[in-house]
Nucleic acid binder design. Structure first.
Length: 279
DNA sequence: AGCCAGGGTCTGC
DNA sequence: GCAGACCATGGC
């Protein structure tokens, strides 16, 4: 990954990449857009500010080591999305979706944080998901030296009682979070098994957790384990499948089906919000 | 007021 | 296997 250092910043060139779409498309929930146009986010114990200016991605106050070992990986900068898109472009709907959402990358996120995030996502909307996660971190995450809070560990959540979670206002999802924490801490749900096993095995492993069904499991596999063949079906994707693929989605068995899913998810939401002008 | 939000569980058929 | 009730909360 090529990069250069410039005044305490690291800059790298990105093609067909959209920082904003990547960070606001509903795969992650701990990045906030700032008034200066940058995004401020917390990943692990790193608080980071990132800008995109044209084809340049700029990391503020960032060491080379952190860029190489953390951010280039997190933003999936080494994957050739152009090649994947070329394979999907034969399809007319996907061609349109890629035109409007093709700048999205699948982030390589932490499995535990992703499990919690998508448990919280169920029957919920993105702004409120972010609010609940923010309160969860503020209440139970360690304070970071550079400000902000770390995502709370499974051990920490496992030590809590359901009433402790009341302030985060997660509703009925609170008990699911505690069950997830217990099963991750005990080893009943084992991440190594998920990394090593098939997609089906991974789904089965995650569904041991009370409150994780098929959709949330697929989201966790796609966003938390970088299993790009996972294909989460939510209400929006159901609409897409019904409207545009009544005879079945032709890329379901492809290794990048989940990337196609993300393009379609973003695209249908833009359409419904009227953000895409009539053809 | 009623409906919906990146759903899941439980029950009844 | 599938439909329906129910689950908390908040925005519109």
């Amino acid at each position: 990954m090529d990069y250069r250092i410039d005044h305490n910043q690291i800059k790298t060139t990105v093609k067909d990449f959209s920082l904003e779409d990547t960070l606001t498309c509903g795969q992650c929930f701990r990045w906030e857009k700032q008034e200066d146009g940058s995004f401020l986010g917390i990943v692990g114990d790193h608080v980071q500010r990132v800008w995109q200016k044209g084809e340049e991605l700029i990391f503020d106050q960032c060491s080379e080591e952190d860029f190489r070992s953390l951010w280039a990986v997190y933003f999936d900068l080494s994957t050739d999305y152009c090649q994947i898109q070329n394979n999907l472009c034969d399809d007319k709907t996907l061609e349109q979706a890629i035109r409007h959402a093709g700048g999205i990358r699948i982030l390589r996120q932490d499995p535990w944080e992703t499990i919690c995030s998508f448990i919280i996502s169920q029957n919920n909307n993105i702004p409120r998901i972010k609010g609940i996660i923010s309160r969860l971190c503020q209440q139970f995450g360690e304070v970071l030296p550079s400000g902000g809070y770390r995502f709370p560990s499974a051990e920490k959540l496992a030590s809590l009682k359901i009433e402790d979670l009341a302030p985060i206002r997660a509703g009925f999802r609170g008990k699911y979070l505690l069950d997830a924490a217990k099963k991750v801490v005990s080893g009943e749900v084992n991440f190594e098994r998920i990394y090593a096993g098939s997609l089906t095995d991974g789904e089965e492993e995650l569904r041991k957790i009370y409150g994780i069904g098929k959709k949330v499991a697929q989201c966790v596999l796609l966003y938390g384990f970088y299993r790009t063949e996972a294909f989460p079906v939510d209400v929006w994707i159901k609409k897409v499948l019904k409207e545009y693929y009544p005879d079945g989605f032709p890329y379901l068995d492809q290794p990048y089906a989940g990337i196609a899913q993300q393009y379609l998810f973003h695209y249908i939401r833009l359409l419904e919000k009227g953000k895409i002008p009539e053809e």
